[in-house]
Design a protein around this nucleic acid. Sequence first.
DNA 1: CTTGACTGCGTACGCATGTACGTGTACTTT
DNA 2: AAAGTACACGTACATGCGTACGCAGTCAAG
Lengths: 120, 120
Amino acid sequence: MVERPELSKNETEVARVLLEMGTGTTRQVFERMSGTRRIDFATVQTYLRRLETKGYVRGSNQGRTRVYVPRVKLTTVIRQTVSDLIDRLFDGQAMPLVRHLIEDKKLSEDEIEELRRLLK
Amino acid sequence: MVERPELSKNETEVARVLLEMGTGTTRQVFERMSGTRRIDFATVQTYLRRLETKGYVRGSNQGRTRVYVPRVKLTTVIRQTVSDLIDRLFDGQAMPLVRHLIEDKKLSEDEIEELRRLLK
DNA sequence: CTTGACTGCGTACGCATGTACGTGTACTTT
DNA sequence: AAAGTACACGTACATGCGTACGCAGTCAAG
């Protein structure tokens, strides 16, 4: 498992978007993101390039269009990000975070129900 | 509720430590932190100064010692940090994170039990 | 008083990050 | 063919961040 530089918050977000798509062009990632946040096309380009430099994705040119494919699993990125947060905020214990989520970010009744089921 | 600049990861950690203590001198925060991580006293000083600049703590001089007291609640810091992560990684949905935590970071049997109780 | 330990505060400094412009080139529409 | 449109890629640049040095002052120990 190669050592990869950490991702910044924005980079993480771009990575997530791409990894969810499985594969995508700069524009596709941009489109997907600009639905939610305000962000410039060129900025997305830069993030994708940086993700490539950091070894998280691989870019290639299909014709004159740049296409990016993941080199890591989304789960991995999530696990790393979440672990980091848990270390800094909860002394490495996952449980306090779960508790926080349940108590603070109120889940819907349905979700609570789903959770109960999950726990069996 | 005043607008405060975001905290970096390290700043967040220092903030958490201080907020848990309720109040503390530079040295106290340093001691507490150097138990876990390797960090320089001067570096902690800088973080506390930055936390003050950003409005998260208030510093005053008791004699020649600088004492810091919180200006925000720990819960607030946690909520903000966690929200940010949820936005970037889970489209703002708390549930997927909870699921991740349960499936990936295996909680102990006791904790699962506690969770079940929590959900009633 | 002198020496050493500790600290506040200013300052530094290189790399990361957020954000984007400009140029050259290829594709599309007149 | 000419003009407009889109994109890759190089480049930029201010600010943030991690990390710490050094000076000047203070307190404790001798």
